[in-house]
Design a binder for these strands. Structure first.
Lengths: 204, 204
DNA sequence: AGACTAACGCGACTGGAGTGGCCTTAGCGG
DNA sequence: CCGCTAAGGCCACTCCAGTCGCGTTAGTCT
């Protein structure tokens, strides 16, 4: 559900949608090439063929551009794998996170989104929405685990997901320590162990 | 071990140290008053009575100022409590984190440090050093728990600490969800449960 | 005490971010 | 097919972050 697709928008298709697409694409490219800190509205405008003023009017600044790009990137059909084992499913989710921030071609985008959320409320809201949706999708993995009897009834699905990925983000952006596949596996194992022990109940 | 105290520094005491102290103090004040995003070198210079040029020369920019302020703030004598129970000790550590980012008078400082690390390598290094030291101090809590037989031998102390605090940082700065005392208690309980299950071994 | 030099103060300058007014274009309606 | 209006283009302007060169001050060392 992007801005230009909204039913209430005055000019749903046509020029408005084209400029937005061009700017979003340019934002992603600039982000990958120069990074969030060195990125500039001027550069995005030049690359997209849209005038600076238009970008300032419709978005407002770099953090908002990143927020919109995140929203566009979130409109994917990503789904967690279903291997039949909760811990394996969670490990794959955690591995996706590690790859998304270390080896993925557009790895600068999610990091920039987290950084942008410090600078603009709109970016923070976009981030909140993005992760709410991710938690929703990943919760199915935990729900399946409960159905299979691998996790106790009453386990909070989203909390298990948070526990499984939080250490990765913590190392990446807080303690600034290296992350690898082992980090992901360990975090997933810890989340499952905690859930099995009943330490992650709903409504806690 | 701050810059001005270093044995190799050319001018250990005197004007250099005074300027640095004034600038660090001004940085903390500006941070609390205007926040990281709206903070400016101009403001810090004016408040400290030091010229803009000097600040640019010795630090380089806002992120470096924040990094130095973090370094100064890290020179405290904070120690985790010793209640005789690992989970209670960890819960108190987690509670300190929650308070430090939500209700503490200088709560803007640590958040700014995390944000600054996205913008300057020097800030990222300062952050890394800060958390390495924190992990070191908090590891004692886990070590005591192992000695008491509350946690299995071979548990990785730092990893338990990371697991206990990571969900808080995750909610604060990644998923942008609210945090409270319950968040801290839950995270500490999950960390202990995972450690008890042997999911957080050393050298993993 | 006096020279030496690192560090600071100062003002001028540059470049780019961000804004406002005005005109043009393109999509939508009748 | 033709007006209507939202959105974009264009240009000029302001303002502030950051830099440079030079003069001055204050520790340090003999």
């Amino acid at each position: 559900m992007s801005e230009a697709d909204r039913p209430g928008a005055r000019r749903p298709g046509g020029r408005t949608a084209r400029t937005r697409a061009a700017v979003v694409r340019a934002t992603l490219d600039e982000l990958a090439e120069r990074g969030f800190t060195d990125m500039t509205v001027e550069g995005v405008a030049a690359r997209s063929g849209v005038h600076r003023t238009t970008v300032y009017r419709r978005w407002g600044g770099v953090p908002e551009l990143v927020a919109d790009a995140l929203g566009a990137a979130a409109d994917d059909d990503w789904r967690p794998a279903d291997t039949g084992d909760v811990e394996e499913d969670l490990r794959r989710i955690a591995l996706d996170v590690v790859h998304g921030f270390t080896t993925a071609p557009d790895r600068a985008v999610p990091a920039a989104a987290i950084s942008a959320a410090f600078h603009a409320d709109r970016a923070a809201e976009a981030l909140r929405g993005f992760f709410a949706e991710r938690h929703r999708r990943c919760a199915e993995v935990v729900a399946r685990g409960v159905e299979r009897g691998q996790l106790p009834v009453g386990t909070d699905p989203a909390e298990v997901v948070r526990t499984a990925v939080a250490p990765i983000y913590y190392r990446l952006f807080v303690s600034r320590e290296p992350v690898d596949a082992g980090t992901a596996a360990r975090a997933a194992a810890a989340a499952v162990a905690a859930a099995r022990a009943g330490a992650l109940p709903a409504q806690g």
